[in-house]
Each structure stands twice: as C-alpha cells, then as structure tokens.
Design a protein around this nucleic acid. Structure first.
Length: 110
DNA sequence: AAGGTGACTAACA
DNA sequence: ATGTTAGCCACCT
C-alpha cells in the first residue's frame, strides 16, 4: 500500500462534521513531515473517488484549495452541509479548528 | 535516475 | 503580531 492509499484510507475515516489538517493526517500515517504530500495527494486524486476530501484543511483552519473541480467554495458548502461552521476571513473560508478538528490530542508529535 | 512540484508548516526576522 | 523563508518527501516527467 503506497502513501497515497494510506492518505485516502485515513481521509475516509474522518467523521462528518469534523475536519483534520494535512499535517495531522501525515502524522497519523507516521510521516509527520509529509503534510505537503497529503495536500498534493488530494489534489491529484480521482474526482470520482469516494473520499471526503473536503474535511481536510490546513493547520490554521483555512481552506486553501486550488483545484477547479474542488474549489474552496464547494468545499465550504460541503462542510456547512455537515454542520461545520465555516466563515469568511481574510478573503478565505475559515473553520474553527478548536471546535471541529478531529482528535486534536493526536497532534502531538515533534 | 535526477530534479521539479506542491490543497503544508514551523521557525525567523 | 504579521510577512517571509526554507525544509519537507512521495510522486511525476
């Protein structure tokens, strides 16, 4: 199983109504510094894959997608549909990580 | 086979 | 406190 598959697998486990950061996912796959790869992975992923890609955002809570199919607007909409509070901040969509981050305690590492 | 590319981050100035 | 910089590492060309 390659890294991408692990990312996909893990992403699927994120429950609706919660979000995780790229770095957090990387840490859970035991490669704490691979945050960028996680992002790239989701960027490259098949659009039809059954993966809740929208539940993954950056460590500060901002939505920074650059995909056209998976735009930040779409992502924000999907999250709100699941009960995650998304607001406008600095021209970007933002969610409160303190409230919605998946298992914050796991973000130890380092 | 080697170097480039990120939906990132933490450390610094 | 805010903006920049430099590591990060699996995959692609």
């Amino acid at each position: 199983m390659n890294f991408f598959d692990q990312v996909y697998n893990l992403t699927k486990k994120i429950p609706a109504g919660r979000v995780a950061s790229y770095g957090q996912l990387a840490a859970l796959i035991s490669t704490p510094r691979a945050a960028r790869i996680v992002g790239w992975c989701l960027h490259q992923m098949d659009t039809d894959a059954d993966i809740p890609w929208h539940r993954v955002i950056n460590s500060k809570g901002y939505i920074t997608t650059t995909c056209e199919d998976h735009s930040a607007d779409v992502q924000a909409k999907l999250l709100r549909k699941e009960g995650v509070k998304v607001s406008r901040k600095d021209e970007l969509w933002w969610v409160d990580m303190k409230k919605f981050q998946l298992n914050p305690k796991l973000k130890v590492v380092s």
